[in-house]
Design a protein around this nucleic acid. Structure first.
Lengths: 334, 334
DNA sequence: CTGAAAGCGCTTACAG
DNA sequence: CTGAAAGCGCTTACAG
């Protein structure tokens, strides 16, 4: 294992100067710096992070900007993932502070971000950016020192970007629906509306996949405030309908429909929560497909940390969030 | 943050003594030790692992006993997971050495284990134990200092035990098969034999789940050296058969059967490898269910490390290996 | 059984 | 722009 001291000795200088070169300090002559960097590469120097952290005693702050949506599970799971990644950070004296703003109020997010950049001097930002263009602008002057991870919406190319593939999960739901039936059955598609995060992408993925199938799609049936108008859905369901897909409010909608009407239909949905789990357990929903938000949160924390601290860039594969398929039998995995 | 020094000061003793108490050293008076432990609990002392590792310079060894089976993916994935967990260990100066022995030769595993315990003084053992009773006996005298993680087969209650739930994955395959068909169709079950790790459990899980269904099971059809006798399988497949389940050698068997015969049948299997993926992509296999061996390996490394180093015991949930369901549309997640 | 001291690899305020 | 020095929290060989 090669240390800064080794490099210093070979070069006839002090550890201090070597440390400076390796930390990107500005108080160092360019030539010296280059010489040190060159040798450290030749020797295969890797910084010992324990030594480094031990010496670096003051707490460094990372701010995570999440959003609160009506879909409570969304931010809850993301937060849980983020918190779990914190454990690792804590021992290195990094701290993630979570700030939640409303999905419906991009301006609030922008304002708080501005304030924090100015006052708290964070070393990293994790964000589910709402007003993407505005946020890009705000971050620009801080880019030299700030590491950025965005979730759901991409900012600059250079930032790490973590996204779940909701569209794909929609396609998978379609794949399952297609495979459940041999012949050209009728499938009713219920559009529970757009939550501005996942549900529209789910629906589009499902519909795209169904176009490649021989099943006959009825709908999508859309109603504003659909939960108040379940009657309209009931009208559409008849003997001919063999399968039902719902992209949003699956549990709420199913609960409002008398079971007699749904009996024998195969229902597939996207997303997961306690109510959907219950319905799968009862055999009312056949399967659901969802993206693990927990992992997204966890990855965001981990990734930012790797970037800030180790200057390590992970491969794209590491950021990929898998889709999970849930039938009754693997329900308790989730 | 409370340090050993803080504790020492409050007690009017030196850091050295505090360290000794906290490390479980024997060179310390019981009363002193108890006093220190008590105060450190009161103050909420948590050891700083960076300081600790930095001081602890010599390499510590962990040995992992894996098995080589005919199912190459088995040990390959397990190894990959284990290797990934090593990265974290390395910076703390722990090293995992992997030893593979043949599944068919439990004695070889026992012999090597004996030798290593004697000569290498490992701080931890990860093992897929074959001759469980014998291995329990061998490990007994070392239990004071040695942390043990077993995979697949449990040793003592106190050891951490990581298992995939192959039986459950079999049940899930059954669940999918059951859901694919509305009516009482005939399902042919092909038993590809016992690999002594997964395939029998898969089969039993599948059959158990099918008993709860209204489908009619044909088989299980078992032949010794089944790959040489695919003719017997072909005989069984006729118009009436709507679904086929195969627990082992799915890809090999399907490849030997003319596609005309399989066309229109829904095939579900357990396990995953490149060939199965290919068949799913081609639409020949509808779905497969498998246990992520990679995760098992990763967990084994991580768990042992947590035990050795942090004296941390994870909750059962952390050891749980999920089952994964793969249809065509989520194929590229794996 | 306990303590004084050196050292792990790194960072950074201070002095020049 | 560079260096001497203190210090992060811990461990352990050595001396008593």
């Amino acid at each position: 294992m090669v240390t800064q001291e080794d490099i210093a000795k070979k070069l006839g200088i002090t550890r201090t100067t070597v440390a400076r070169a390796l930390n990107g300090s500005k108080n160092i002559k360019l030539a010296t710096k280059e010489m040190i960097i060159k040798l450290s590469k030749e020797l295969g120097y890797e910084k010992n992070h324990m030594g480094s952290s031990l010496a670096l005693k003051k707490e460094k702050q990372i701010f995570a900007f999440l959003v609160k949506s009506k879909n409570k599970d969304y931010s809850k799971e993301l937060k849980r993932g983020l918190r779990d990644s914190q454990e690792k950070l804590k021992i290195y004296n990094y701290k993630i502070k979570i700030i939640e703003t409303l999905l419906s109020s991009p301006k609030e997010q922008v304002d708080i971000l501005k304030k924090i950049l100015l006052e708290d001097k964070p070393v990293g930002i994790i964000i589910v950016p709402l007003d993407v263009e505005e946020i890009k602008k705000i971050l620009k002057p801080y880019r030299e020192t700030l590491k950025i991870v965005s979730i759901e919406n991409q900012l600059e190319q250079e930032d790490c970007f973590i996204e779940a593939n909701y569209h794909k999960s929609g396609r998978i739901a379609g794949d399952i629906m297609d495979n459940i039936f041999f012949s050209k059955e009728k499938i009713l598609v219920i559009d529970g509306g757009d939550d501005r995060l996942t549900s529209k992408k789910y629906l589009n993925g499902f519909l795209e996949r169904m176009e490649e199938s021989d099943k006959k799609i009825i709908g999508p049936l859309y109603e504003e405030k659909i939960l108040g108008k379940v009657g309209k859905i009931i009208e559409k369901i008849n003997e001919d309908i063999k399968g039902i897909y719902i992209n949003r409010y699956a549990a709420e909608i199913i609960d409002k429909i008398p079971y007699e009407i749904l009996k024998g239909k195969k229902i597939v949905t996207n997303g997961i929560n306690r109510d959907i789990k219950k319905l799968i357990k009862e055999g009312k929903i056949t399967a659901t497909v969802f993206d693990e938000l927990y992992i997204q949160g966890y990855l965001a924390g981990k990734t930012l940390f790797d970037r800030v601290f180790k200057c390590k860039v992970l491969s794209d594969e590491d950021y990929r969030v898998k889709s999970h398929i849930v039938f009754k039998e693997n329900l308790d995995d989730y």
